[in-house]
């Protein structure tokens, strides 16, 4: 798959072509998993990306998850207190985080922290014609640049999602203990009692899909960068916006697929 392209006339055709190009890029990167695992150059980049995505986003994910859990716990507690059903906070938080909020927050954090970085990095390489140089040296840019990033994001997103859920539960339990007089361990026990394996694994799958979408879009937008430094900035902004939209739309359809059909 070559990354060089001709300009396409018309916004609709350009949009459709961009979607198609992104899909092809993503499919090609997904198919390159063996390269990421077994080729030395790819594996090093893969491990580096795992670190950047996982550990690099950990602090942000921790703060966001902790306070999201605390806010949800407090707001739900205020609402449920009217019915003397404070313990329902744990149930509701469990459902909300495992099914939707955990993957969604992780996707937003990754899109903002990592996706934008990917788009900027690949966009800079594109405008500096480093990507073209790789192609000229018969190095597949997808295998060398996209595969490690996409698989690292795909593998790390569920892990971060579960980590986010756990931190949010702890935040909710903290609020439950201090504001709602619910014992800490009882809150955690209720969370576990409310949790269903299906909710947990659909949430993890959702996070993995978000990882694929974020990295695929970011890489595709980065490769499509033109017009120098200004183009890199625009590509970064576009990558974040498109990733957010993809997360929302993808999240809805995954939920509908697993919980309605």
């Amino acid at each position: 798959m070559t990354l060089t392209r001709e300009p396409i006339e018309g916004p609709v055709a350009a949009a459709v072509a961009a979607v198609g190009r992104t899909a092809r890029l993503t499919a090609a990167a997904l198919a390159g998993l063996p390269a990421a695992l077994f080729r030395r150059d790819c594996r090093a980049t893969f491990l580096r990306q795992l670190y950047l995505i996982g550990i690099g986003s950990l602090a942000v994910a921790t703060v966001v998850a902790l306070f999201t859990g605390m806010i949800l716990g407090l707001q739900l507690g205020i609402a449920f207190r009217q019915f003397s059903q404070e313990l329902m906070v744990a149930f509701t938080l469990s459902y909300a985080m495992l099914r939707e909020m955990g993957p969604f927050m992780t996707g937003i954090i990754l899109a903002a922290c990592v996706g934008s970085s990917m788009a900027a990095q690949l966009g800079t390489m594109t405008v500096n014609e480093e990507v073209a140089a790789l192609e000229m040296m018969s190095v597949d840019p997808i295998r060398f640049l996209v595969v490690p990033r996409l698989w690292a994001m795909t593998l790390m997103a569920p892990i971060l999602s579960f980590y986010t859920c756990v931190i949010a539960f702890l935040g909710g339990a903290l609020v439950g203990y201090t504001q709602l007089n619910i014992p800490f361990l009882q809150f955690i026990g209720q969370v576990m009692e409310a949790a269903e394996p299906k909710d947990l694994y659909v949430g993890l799958l959702k996070a993995a899909v978000f990882g694929v979408l974020i990295s695929g879009i970011s890489c595709a937008v980065g490769f499509a960068t033109t017009q120098g430094a200004a183009g890199v900035g625009a590509s970064t902004r576009r990558a974040v916006i498109l990733s957010f939209l993809a997360i929302l739309v993808g999240g809805y359809f995954i939920t509908r697929f697993f919980y309605v059909f």
Binding site: L47, R48, L50, Y51, G54, I55, L58, M156, I159, F162, Y163, V166, M192, A195, E196, P197, L200, L204
Partner: peptide, 25 residues
Amino acid sequence: LPEVITGLFVAAVIALLAFFTIVIS
């Protein structure tokens, strides 16, 4: 070092995930 840190984090979360899965099952 980054690889070790990443490995520890991933292993810890996966262990927690396994425990959580067993408990909620």
